[in-house]
Each structure stands twice: as structure tokens, then as C-alpha cells.
Simulated assay, not measured.
Amino acid sequence: MPEFGYYAKRPRPQHREYLRKCLDARAFVESVEELDDFRLFVRRRGMSGVHVYLTNSYEIGVADVEEILADAPETTCIVSTMDYNHYSSEAKTLATERGVGLFKAVEFLGAVYFDGEAFLGYLSPAQREALRRRNNS
């Protein structure tokens, strides 16, 4: 049966479940609570909890960040569940200025080890390498 755009922004159940399993496998994650189709709460030992807002938007822009934060103001992290999705640099900047992490799922799985500024400014190994190359050219 056709989806008629149902998953245009909504994370697919299998992607939400994959992310949850990855988080549950980390020893420092105490629990992952699914609040609804879009929101998770991740409790971490010795660190702050993370209010995660999941999205399947192909490109997260400034308007998307604004919409998400208006809908779920407790959000401390926005995660795009598909690795081929992306976000604009302006959206990343806005989210960071608001104290909210903005990541692809694979980036979030690295950022979750950190708190505070290290969490917000987390760069994946590929992003760090690309930055290093730009700085060396």
C-alpha cells in the first residue's frame, strides 16, 4: 500500500528501533524511553539526559529546527534517522545557538558519549578529517 508521504518527516519504525538498539548497547546508557513516534529520552550515567527529536526530513533547514523546537521545546537534540538525509549549515548553527545538537543518526551515536559543548560541537571522524584537509590546503 502506498505511503502517501506518511514518512516524509516521521521516522520509520525500523530506523527508530535500530537507533534504540544501538543506544541500549552502550554501557553508560541507563535507559531509552520512547515518548512517541518522534521523541526519545536517553538517560546516561554521570551525564545529562538527552531529549531526542527524531525526524526523517530529507533536508533539515532553519524552518524545520524552528518548527521542531516550537512543537517540542524540551528538545536537546534533533536526529535525522537516515544517513542520506542532511541538514543545512544554517540549521546546524541555529540549533547550536539554542543549545540543541543537530545530527545524522551516525553522528548522534558518537556525540552521545559527550555532554555540554563537546556534545553540541561533536564532529564525526569523517567530518574531522574533512576539516583537517580544508585547514591544510
Rank of each mutant, 00 (worst) to 15 (best):
26 R>V: 14
26 R>K: 15
26 R>N: 05
26 R>C: 07
27 A>G: 06
27 A>K: 12
27 A>Y: 05
28 F>P: 05
29 V>W: 00
29 V>N: 03
30 E>D: 10
31 S>P: 02
31 S>W: 02
32 V>T: 04
32 V>C: 04
32 V>M: 01
32 V>Q: 02
33 E>Y: 02
33 E>P: 03
34 E>C: 00
34 E>P: 04
34 E>M: 01
35 L>T: 06
35 L>G: 03
35 L>H: 05
35 L>W: 02
36 D>L: 01
36 D>M: 00
37 D>K: 01
37 D>R: 03
38 F>P: 00
38 F>N: 07
38 F>E: 09
39 R>I: 04
39 R>E: 11
39 R>W: 06
39 R>S: 09
39 R>K: 10
39 R>D: 10
39 R>T: 11
39 R>H: 11
40 L>M: 10
40 L>I: 07
40 L>P: 04
40 L>N: 04
40 L>R: 02
40 L>G: 06
41 F>Q: 10
41 F>T: 15
42 V>M: 01
42 V>Q: 01
43 R>L: 11
43 R>T: 09
43 R>G: 02
43 R>E: 14
44 R>E: 14
44 R>W: 13
44 R>A: 14
45 R>K: 14
45 R>L: 08
45 R>T: 12
46 G>L: 05
46 G>D: 08
47 M>E: 09
47 M>N: 06
48 S>Y: 06
48 S>C: 10
48 S>F: 07
49 G>W: 07
49 G>M: 05
49 G>F: 08
50 V>I: 14
50 V>D: 05
51 H>A: 14
51 H>F: 13
52 V>D: 14
52 V>L: 15
52 V>A: 14
52 V>S: 14
53 Y>A: 12
53 Y>T: 15
54 L>C: 04
54 L>S: 06
54 L>M: 12
55 T>N: 03
55 T>G: 05
55 T>L: 03
55 T>F: 05
56 N>R: 12
56 N>A: 15
56 N>H: 10
56 N>G: 09
57 S>E: 13
57 S>Y: 06
57 S>D: 11
58 Y>N: 08
58 Y>I: 09
58 Y>C: 08
59 E>T: 15
59 E>A: 09
59 E>I: 15
59 E>D: 08
59 E>M: 14
60 I>W: 00
61 G>W: 01
61 G>I: 02
62 V>A: 04
62 V>G: 00
62 V>I: 09
63 A>Q: 08
63 A>K: 08
63 A>S: 10
64 D>S: 11
64 D>M: 01
65 V>P: 02
65 V>T: 04
65 V>Q: 00
66 E>D: 15
66 E>H: 14
67 E>W: 05
67 E>T: 11
67 E>S: 12
68 I>L: 04
68 I>G: 00
69 L>M: 15
69 L>V: 07
69 L>D: 07
70 A>D: 09
70 A>P: 02
71 D>H: 07
71 D>R: 14
71 D>G: 06
71 D>Q: 12
72 A>W: 11
72 A>H: 12
72 A>K: 15
72 A>I: 05
72 A>N: 10
73 P>R: 08
